[in-house]
Design a protein around this nucleic acid. Structure first.
Length: 462
RNA sequence: GUCCCCGUAGCUCAGUUGGAUAGAGCGUCGGAUUCCUAAUCCGAAGGCCACAGGUUCGAAUCCUGUCGGGGACACCA
């Protein structure tokens, strides 16, 4: 492809209010694999994470941290009240805050400590999140802070520009139609972005009635900021945000076209994952703060299994993740099967060298027959497969391709069971043996390359 | 009520972005093994590509509608 364009891939962007749970997992893996895939295809990729550190949720986080801070200083806080984050992960944060500040924020009104606690708690949460992402082998290049965006006045800039072009106006939202009748509906005049001009169902407010920016108002400025530094934008979102795709696309179209630099922008929606164990769905209670974290998943089945499995389905289709099935050692477990093929190749290469002194060589490739050629053809498809997957922005195709390649490798390998002449290691015919090992080595290479694209390590023995 | 995603073999899913007889795995049935990793391999049966229209020389693929599953719909993030 060699397009050599700068592509910004934003993924994960989980709220900095706790550790990552399984709901973030698929988007994280898909985004990361996509980024790698685009890099491999010759793009200059930026992996970006947007930190929502300016909304009401981080205030709740700060208050929850303050509660744990009081606890760390000896107070019995008993049960965590409604409206606070109950998770145990805030206990060490409270201790750290107590160690850092002593009792100076005890018994103080909120305005005296909220900002301090918010900043400190968000930092700690981001450390947590970065650690969780590292478990999945994920590392972002840029962590963009929403608060910093506000401080830099980006939303104001965007608003001014949009107003100047009659794309933002002050207006009143219509009450929501349909099944959910308005309960405490008030009609207020708000600054609205004309997203209907770009196919949205409704114009969208960029500021709230208290004058603060809405999430959308900030996000719009954020996308503008990203677009200034690259040639194409990709966002990976959970499917629960599908309803906001139109407005943000409208915003990017309006701003980037208006400013003379139309920026292609793609939002990839990733569907929910249903966790299962041996066919039974796992239910988790959000209320108690008890959910299955990414750390739990990685600890139980390993990074490679989590990553590969998340890529064995197209992202926009719902999927199950069965803790029992993903570690099964059989052909219906793609992770295992691809690894098995690679280990088998490595095992043969080792054995050939150590026991027979035969190493791969391309000197006698003309001795290879029709079956080997079919295998070579399959392996040779790899670059085209990568190109197609990159163009379609669908990393899961690589996973399916690797599975197919493993199938063909194993099929050829099995010919040697009934016909000893079809084996890789042939003592009486070193030339052919070298050629077949050369082929095996090449396929091993393709498997490794493909797995690396997915962020999965190939194993040499199992 | 509106919007988005999905609907392909009994089950779980691919399908190279409109091209020839629609492909895997599991399951079922029938085979292969004194084996370089059999945790594997080969073969068979099994499809009106949800349904109905439309566009096209040509549709699983694009458009419209219906049905079914999932998700989202105030100034939350």
């Amino acid at each position: 492809m060699g397009a050599d364009t700068r592509v910004n891939v934003e993924y994960v962007s989980a709220n900095p209010t706790g550790p990552m749970h399984m709901g973030h997992c698929r988007g994280a893996v898909v985004g990361d694999a996509l980024a790698t895939l685009l890099e491999f295809a010759g793009h200059d990729v930026t992996r970006e994470y947007y930190i929502n550190d300016a909304g009401g949720q981080v205030d709740t986080l700060a208050r929850s941290a303050h509660l744990r801070y009081r606890e760390a200083l000896g107070e019995d806080i008993e049960t965590i009240p409604e409206g606070y984050y109950p998770g145990d992960y805030l206990i060490p944060v409270g201790k750290a805050l107590a160690a850092e500040f002593g009792d100076q924020y005890l018994g103080q009104p909120e305005e005296n400590w909220l900002i301090v606690f918010r900043t400190a708690a968000v930092d700690k949460m981001m450390d947590l999140i970065r650690a969780d992402l590292a478990l999945l082998g994920i590392e972002h290049d840029v962590f963009a802070s929403e608060a910093a965006l506000h401080k830099a006045g980006k939303p104001d800039e965007a608003e001014a520009w949009l107003r100047a072009h009659d794309l933002v106006y002050d207006g009143v939202l219509e009450a929501p139609k349909g099944k959910a009748p308005p309960e405490d509906w008030e009609s207020v005049e708000l600054p609205l972005f004309r997203s209907t001009k770009f196919g949205d169902d409704q114009d969208r407010p960029i500021k709230k009635s208290d004058g603060k920016w809405t999430y959308f108002g900030a996000d719009l400025a954020y996308h503008m900021q990203k677009a200034e530094a690259c040639d194409a934008l990709i966002d990976i979102w959970g499917a629960d945000h599908a309803g906001t795709v139109k407005r943000i696309k409208a915003a990017v179209a309006a701003l980037s076209e208006g400013k003379g630099k139309p920026t292609p922008f793609d939002v990839k929606l990733v569907q929910m994952v249903q966790l299962m164990r041996a066919g039974e769905p796992l239910k988790m209670s959000k209320r108690s703060g008890n959910f299955i974290t990414i750390a739990d998943m990685v600890e139980e089945v390993g990074k490679d299994v989590v990553r590969f499995t998340m890529l064995t389905r197209k992202p926009e289709a719902q999927m199950d993740f069965d803790f029992a099935k993903v570690v099964e050692a059989s052909k219906d477990n793609p992770v295992w099967y691809v690894q098995y093929a690679h280990a088998r190749i490595q095992s043969n290469l080792r054995k050939a060298l150590e026991e027979e002194g035969i190493s791969p060589s391309g000197d006698a490739l003309e001795q290879l027959g029709a079956e080997e050629l079919a295998l070579i053809r399959k392996a040779a498809q790899f670059p085209r497969e990568v190109e197609a997957a990159a163009k379609a922005r669908e990393p899961h195709r690589i996973a399916f391709y690797l599975y197919d390649l493993a199938t063909e490798l194993n099929a050829f390998y099995s010919l040697g069971n009934t016909d000893p002449e079809k084996r890789f290691i042939l003592k009486h015919n070193p030339g052919l043996s070298q050629a077949r090992l050369f082929l095996a080595d090449a396929i091993g290479q393709v498997l490794r390359n493909g797995l690396r694209l997915l962020g999965v390590e190939a194993v040499d023995r199992m």
